[in-house]
C-alpha cells in the first residue's frame, strides 16, 4: 500500500473516532458549565464541542478526501489499475511476456522503465501531460462503467511521439540512424509515428479478437 493509502486510512479512521466521540459525548459537553482540561489548556464545554466538531465534520473529512484523491490519482498510474478493466488484459499480459516483440514488451524487458509502465508512455510531459492522461483515464472509466465501448478496443486520437523522443532522442543508437534525421521534423510535430517502423506497441486488434491464436493467452486475468 502506498503512503497516501495509509494517510487516507489513518485520517479517515480518526474522523470516525472523533465523529463517534461527538455523537456520544457531545450533548454532555454542551450542558457542562465547568471548563474541560485538555492538556495544558482549559476549554469551555461549548468550545470543546465546536473544536471536535470542526475536526470531525470539516477538517478531517476534507483531508481524507484529499488523501483519497491523491491515492486515486497516484494509484491510477499503476499497471494494476489499468488491468482493473478486462479490456486492458491483453496489453498487460503482452507487456510481461518475455517472448513478445511488441514495443511495450521490449521496453519492459529492458528494465529502463521500472514500475508504472503504462502511465510512463501514455502521459505527456509536465502538469499538462499528467492532466490529459488523467482526463483520458476518466474517459475510459466512464465508458467502461457505462458499457459504452466495443471490443477489441482501439486507441482514439494519436499517441504522442514526444513520449518516445523524450528518452530516445539524443542517444547514440538513435542519432546513428540517418532516417531519424530525415524524419526528425515529422517525428517532432507528430505527423509521423515511431511505430511506423518500430511498432506495433501492443497486440494488434486482430490478435485481440476471439478466434485468433493469441486471443486465449492474451485474455488471462493478469492480476
Amino acid at each position: 500500500m502506498s503512503l497516501f493509502a495509509w494517510v487516507t486510512l489513518g485520517v479517515g479512521g480518526l474522523t470516525l473516532v472523533l465523529g463517534l466521540l461527538l455523537l456520544i459525548r457531545g450533548p454532555s459537553w454542551l450542558k457542562r458549565t465547568r471548563p474541560i482540561q485538555l492538556g495544558v489548556v482549559a476549554l469551555s464545554g461549548v468550545a470543546t464541542y465546536k473544536l471536535v466538531a470542526f475536526f470531525a465534520i470539516a477538517a478531517l473529512p476534507v483531508a481524507t478526501l484529499g488523501a483519497a484523491h491523491v491515492e486515486l490519482l497516484e494509484g491510477a498510474k499503476s499497471v494494476e489499475a489499468c488491468a482493473g478493466c478486462h479490456v486492458m488484459w491483453p496489453m498487460v499480459n503482452d507487456l510481461h511476456d518475455p517472448a513478445s516483440d511488441s514495443l511495450a514488451a521490449r521496453h519492459f524487458k529492458n528494465r529502463y522503465i521500472q514500475g508504472e509502465e503504462c502511465y510512463h508512455c501514455h502521459s505527456g510531459y509536465g502538469f499538462n501531460g499528467a492532466l490529459s492522461a488523467k482526463l483520458e483515464g476518466y474517459r475510459h472509466l466512464v465508458r467502461y462503467t457505462t458499457g459504452i465501448y466495443q471490443e477489441p478496443i482501439r486507441m482514439r486520437g494519436k499517441f504522442d511521439t514526444a513520449s518516445c523522443l523524450n528518452c530516445h532522442e539524443g542517444t547514440r543508437p538513435f542519432e546513428a540512424i540517418n532516417s531519424h534525421h530525415v524524419a526528425s521534423e515529422r517525428l517532432a510535430e507528430g505527423t509521423m509515428s515511431c511505430t511506423n517502423c518500430h511498432g506495433p506497441a501492443h497486440p494488434t486488434r486482430s490478435e485481440r479478437t476471439p478466434g485468433d491464436a493469441h486471443y486465449q493467452g492474451l485474455m488471462r486475468d493478469p492480476l
Binding site: S179, A183, T195, N196, C197, H198, T204
Partner: peptide, 10 residues
C-alpha cells in the same frame, strides 16, 4: 505487422 521503413512512412 504494421512495420514500414522511412520511405513508406513518407
Amino acid at each position: 505487422r504494421g512495420k514500414l521503413c522511412i520511405k513508406g512512412s513518407l
